[in-house]
């Protein structure tokens, strides 16, 4: 895809959106959009309590805000963070963990796995502490990936981290809460990137490439007909489009986050081992071993680390 990217204008792409589809210096994917996970915060409660929010909002600051507003006796919780068996648990963990300095690997081999680290311990302690102190709803360990959405939309949560699906739903069904919601991005934003590939077996690869250039060269059409109707679910991978969107209040946090959105930090490159580890819910199981089974934190981290090591070994050797 390098020729396609060059023709569209490599300089205008956010770097993570190119790296996410690049292997050994060759681009195999043309990104189309990224999907940042942002803090959704109850603006009305912030104002009532006189709390100021910094941008980007760190996880430490988020917890401090949560402590100020937490009211579990009335089924209202500071952090609507999911800990259930679903993708969002790992996604939110990524944002937290990366901001604490964690990363999955330093090099693509079994010995390069870096799950066992002080960053991991700190991130685990952060969540376990928040759960035990009921800053996170007790049922969060049972949620599906819509659990945090329901928590926020049902008025049980002060803040949640999610892509824009919540805002889209609120705009249709609960404009009042929509207007009361503040969107802020965390220091390192988790978010998948979606794009095009052309199969080796494609009969007309040049035609396919021409089509992709045609689709993505018209930035105005890309903005108006693709990005804007998504309500922030699809965020731009082009700097120029993001700059334009920053001028629109609703879009400003999404446009700002687009630049820092990673599927895997810091490399944001394709990794088969991570592709396998995600759906196995290793991170979720690690957290649930501690929270639900009372397992020692270090033992649970060791278990998760070893799971990642064996997956990395399978794909990349020792």
């Amino acid at each position: 895809m390098d020729d396609v990217i060059n023709e569209i204008g490599r300089d205008d792409f956010f770097e993570p959106s190119i790296k996410v589809g690049t292997l050994e210096g060759k681009a195999y994917q043309l990104s189309l959009w990224c999907e940042p996970y942002l803090w959704h915060i109850r603006k009305d409660i912030l104002e009532k309590k006189g709390i100021q929010v910094k941008t980007p909002l760190s996880w430490i600051d988020a917890k401090e805000i949560a402590e100020k507003v937490n009211d579990p006796a009335n089924d209202f919780y500071g952090l609507g963070i999911t800990l259930g068996m679903n993708e969002d648990t790992t996604n939110q963990w990524n944002s937290l963990w990366w901001s604490f300095g964690g990363q999955y690997y330093t090099s693509k081999r079994a010995s390069g796995v870096t799950l066992k680290s002080s960053a991991t311990r700190n991130a685990v302690e952060y969540l376990v502490d928040a759960y035990k102190r009921k800053l996170i709803p007790p049922d969060a360990v049972e949620w599906d990936s819509a659990g945090n959405n329901k928590c926020y939309m049902g008025g049980r949560g002060m803040m949640v981290m999610n892509p824009a699906s919540i805002m889209y739903s609120l705009s249709k069904d609960n404009p009042d809460l929509f207007n009361k919601t503040l969107l802020v991005y965390p220091p390192i934003v988790f978010g998948g990137t979606n794009g095009f590939v052309i199969y080796k077996t494609c009969k007309y690869p040049d035609l396919a490439k021409d089509l992709l250039v045609y689709i993505l060269s018209d930035k105005k059409s890309y903005t108006e007909r693709f990005i804007k109707p998504s309500w922030g679910y699809c965020c731009p991978i082009f700097k120029s489009v993001a700059e334009e969107l920053k001028k629109i209040p609703y879009w400003e946090p999404f446009a700002n986050a687009a630049e820092f959105t990673y599927g895997s930090y810091p490399f944001n490159e394709p990794c088969m081992a991570l592709d396998e580890a995600g759906p196995k819910y290793i991170i979720v199981k690690m957290l649930q071993k501690i929270i639900l089974e009372g397992q020692d934190i270090d033992a649970a981290i060791d278990w998760a680390h070893n799971e990642y090591v064996s997956i990395f070994r399978k794909y990349y050797g020792d």
């Binding site: 259930g84 068996m85 199981k285 649930q288």
Partner: peptide, 8 residues
């Protein structure tokens, strides 16, 4: 409903 969880 549960994807095999919570826990196992």
């Amino acid at each position: 409903l549960t994807r095999g969880g919570p826990g196992d």
